[in-house]
Nucleic acid binder design. Structure first.
Length: 308
DNA sequence: AAGACGTCGCATATGC
DNA sequence: GCACATGCGA
DNA sequence: GTCTT
C-alpha cells in the first residue's frame, strides 16, 4: 500500500504506511486485533487498524487487491521502478498509452531515464559483499593515487556488514575542504577529478548527476559479464564528515532513533552537524567531533559499531 | 479543522 | 542568458 | 494516513 501511495505522488501517506509497518515489525508480541494495534502502536490509527483487522480476519486486503487488479496502477508501479521516473512522469506516460518498459524506450526520455531503462534489470539486482569489496579496492586505490589526503568510506549496508547491498555509497572528505570553503563556493573540483579518473579506467560507465558536492552514476567491475551498479559519491566538508558518516551508514531506523535521543537530550543531529538546542528552541553552534564515538558520547549513550 | 510530515543537490523545465 | 520552479533521488 | 496544535 505504501509503495502505491508513493507512486501516486502521496509521499506522506507512503511515510505513514512505512512508519506503521515498522512499528508492527518491532512489536514483540502477536497482535490479536486491529483495535489493539491502533491502541498499542504509534503510527497505527483508525484506517490502518481496520486494515490490520481485515487481514487478520480474511488473510488479505480488498483495497490492495483492487489496486493490484487495476492496470493503470500495475503500470504505474512498473514505470516507477525505472530510476529517474517518478509519479509525475509515470502518470503522463500512462495517460498517453505507455504500458511496458519496451513502450517507454520509444518515448522522449531525459538522460537519467535513458540510463534507468538501459540498466533496468541490472539495477534491481543485489550486489554481493565480495563484489562490494572489489569495488571498494578500485575506488580507494584510484582516489589515493589522486590525492593521499582524501578520506574514502564506503557507507550504507556494506559498512554495517551486510552480505549484500543495493548500491554503492561513497563518502569522501579532504582536510582542505572546510565549511568556509563550501560557503565561499570555492571551486573544489575534487569530485570532478575523481570522476574523470574513474571514467578513464572504465570503472564508471554512465553519469546521472555530476556536481561539485555530489555524484550519481553507474559503475562496473572489470570482469566479463559484470553487472552495472548504481554508485554515489558525496563530498562533505571535514567539519561534517563524522556526522555524515554516521548518517549515511544508517540504517534509516537507527538514524531515526539517534535523532530522537538527540532531541530528548537537547541536541539536533543531522548529516551536517550536531548542535545544542536551548530550552527556547534556539539552535547553537555545531559541536566539533573527531569520530563517530564522540557523537555517541555527546548523546550520553554507549558507542555501537556500524555492524551492531 | 488544519498543517506538518527531512532536506537538499542536481538536471531540466519555465518564464522573462 | 538568467532566475526561479519542479521532479527526482537519497 | 497519523499526529499535533
Amino acid at each position: 500500500m505504501g509503495t502505491i501511495q508513493k507512486n501516486l505522488g502521496l509521499k506522506h501517506k507512503y511515510m505513514a504506511y512505512t512508519t506503521a509497518a515498522g512499528a508492527l515489525a518491532a512489536y514483540p508480541k502477536r497482535i490479536p486485533s486491529g483495535a489493539v494495534a491502533q491502541k498499542e502502536l504509534d503510527g497505527v490509527g483508525q484506517k490502518i487498524g481496520l486494515k490490520i483487522q481485515e487481514i487478520l480476519d480474511t488473510g488479505k486486503l480488498k483495497k490492495l487487491d483492487q489496486y493490484n487488479s487495476d492496470p493503470k496502477i500495475v503500470t504505474l508501479n512498473l514505470l516507477c521502478r525505472v530510476t529517474g521516473v517518478g509519479p509525475a512522469a509515470a502518470r503522463k506516460w500512462i495517460d498517453s498509452g505507455v504500458k511496458t518498459i519496451e513502450d517507454l524506450k520509444k518515448e522522449k526520455l531525459n538522460h537519467h531515464q535513458e540510463i534507468g531503462v538501459k540498466y533496468f534489470e541490472d539495477f534491481e539486482k543485489r550486489i554481493p559483499r565480495s563484489e562490494m569489496q572489489e569495488i571498494k579496492n578500485i575506488v580507494k586505490t584510484s582516489i589515493s593515487q589522486l590525492d593521499q589526503l582524501i578520506t574514502v568510506k564506503i557507507c550504507g549496508s556494506y559498512r554495517r556488514g551486510s552480505e549484500s547491498s543495493g548500491d554503492v555509497d561513497v563518502l569522501i572528505t579532504h582536510p582542505k575542504f572546510t565549511n568556509e570553503k563550501k560557503e565561499q563556493k570555492d571551486t573544489f573540483d575534487l569530485i570532478k577529478r575523481i570522476v574523470d579518473r574513474l571514467e578513464k579506467i572504465k570503472f564508471l560507465t554512465d553519469h546521472l548527476a555530476n556536481g561539485t558536492q555530489q555524484y550519481m552514476g553507474v559503475c562496473k567491475i572489470p570482469k566479463e559479464g559484470a553487472i552495472a551498479r548504481r554508485i554515489d559519491i558525496k563530498l562533505f566538508p571535514k567539519e561534517s564528515f563524522y556526522t555524515a558518516l554516521l548518517h549515511f551508514t544508517g540504517s534509516g531506523e537507527h538514524n531515526r532513533q539517534l535523532s530522537c535521543i538527540a532531541i530528548n537530550k537537547g541536541f539536533k543531529l543531522s548529516e551536517f552537524s550536531i548542535t545544542p538546542v536551548g530550552s527556547t528552541g534556539v539552535e547553537g553552534a555545531p559541536i566539533p567531533v573527531q569520530s563517530e564515538k564522540e557523537i555517541y558520547d555527546i548523546l550520553g549513550i554507549p558507542f555501537r559499531k556500524p555492524s551492531e
